[in-house]
């Protein structure tokens, strides 16, 4: 890969050095602010803090899988299985507690362990057998959608399980009517994932290994970094995050739908890309991903506030904005390149 990477992006070492590497994430944040101000200017009640809080309620699951996806993409891979693993995790929670009668905390622990184990397995296959990540995780996409449908092809309700009411229990920050807002526990779980990921990615040996492997796997190997551990680790993290997102979805809806989260992996990839992470790996920030998920959520909120936009318009707007983001980042990156040379 090293020679190809060099010929493809000869300018990368200058492009992502110093301050210029913050340009893409800066653009994302600027657009997020612009979207928010545009919403405030055009719609009543858009300035209510609960609008922001709601972003982290509706998109808690997406945030968690996008954070897991950030690790994988930073290492130069991709994980297409997260949407299916997430649906499977929700369904497994429902089946274990409702049908098998296992206590809910144990069921959740089993599901999380399973997600991690799946990630370890697929990461090992990718690393040791050199199966392309796209294909190896495609297996997961099909396998877990199939297994979910085999457990149940209809909705399963978890309303009777006391434990799953915990997630939507909320903490109030002031009265909503007086400009306060509330957040459920599951949002705090998502925040915890973000904070832990931030620390792991930027302040641990493993995190630096992820960037190094994404930048150039052979260089990382020659430098004596534990490439195998890093590459398998990122898929384990992604698998754990997908399972956790499934548990969060179980908390949020208290039911399991076998066809839930179809295409969630694309939303996650889109959020990561909007957040300024290069799909080829080696450059990006986990906080950028948070911004990306917020943009995604903000767009949905704007379309909901507008009210008369149909679902197919939502999709077109999403596509156009994704395009705008990518071109904007590209232009900014190019001008930064010129300034330096």
């Amino acid at each position: 890969m090293s020679t190809q990477t060099l010929t493809e992006r000869p300018s990368r070492s200058t492009l992502f050095d110093g301050l210029t590497r913050y340009v893409p994430i800066g653009a994302t944040v600027a657009l997020l602010v612009a979207l928010y101000l545009g919403g405030v200017a055009n719609y009543r009640n858009f300035d209510n803090p609960q609008v922001i809080a709601k972003l982290f309620i509706d998109n808690a699951s997406l945030l968690v899988i996008a954070v897991g996806m950030t690790f994988v993409i930073l290492s130069g891979g991709i994980d297409l299985s997260v949407g299916s693993v997430m649906a499977f995790a929700t369904m497994a929670c429902a089946w274990l507690t409702v049908e098998a009668g296992i206590s809910a905390p144990l069921a959740v622990a089993l599901v999380l362990a399973f997600g991690t184990a799946w990630g370890l397995l697929i990461g090992s296959v990718i690393h040791y057998f050199h199966v392309q990540p796209f294909i190896a995780t495609l297996v997961g996409l099909f396998l877990f959608r199939g297994l979910t449908l085999q457990i149940s092809d209809t909705d399963v309700s978890m309303r009777d399980v006391e434990f799953f009411h915990w997630g939507m229990t909320h903490v109030d920050f002031g009265e909503v009517r007086d400009g306060g807002f509330w957040l459920p526990y599951l949002s705090f779980l998502a925040f915890a994932v973000v904070i832990i990921s931030f620390v792991v990615l930027h302040y641990t040996r493993f995190g630096r290994g992820v960037y190094a492997v994404g930048g150039s796997e052979s260089s990382a190997l020659l430098m004596g970094l534990p490439v195998a551990r890093t590459k398998i680790g990122v898929y384990a993290i992604s698998g754990f995050c997908a399972a956790l997102a499934g548990v969060l979805a179980a908390f949020a809806t208290k039911s399991a739908n076998p066809l839930a989260n179809v295409g969630a992996e694309l939303d996650a990839i889109a959020a990561v890309v909007i957040g300024g992470t290069l799909l080829t790996g080696g450059a990006g920030f986990v906080l950028g991903t948070v911004a990306g998920v917020m943009v995604w959520g903000m767009l949905n909120t704007l379309i909901a506030f507008q009210g008369n936009l149909s679902s197919w318009w939502a999709r077109i707007v999403m596509g156009v904005l994704l395009l705008a983001f990518i071109l904007l980042q590209r232009v900014l990156a190019r001008s930064g390149e010129k300034r330096r040379t």
Binding site: R315, M318, G319, L322
Partner: peptide, 20 residues
């Protein structure tokens, strides 16, 4: 632009265009 990203745009927007 990376091919996955470039074509992801139309993957998301394309069905919307078809609906239109």
């Amino acid at each position: 632009i990376q091919p996955i990203v470039a074509t992801l745009i139309l993957m998301i927007a394309g069905r919307g265009i078809a609906q239109l």
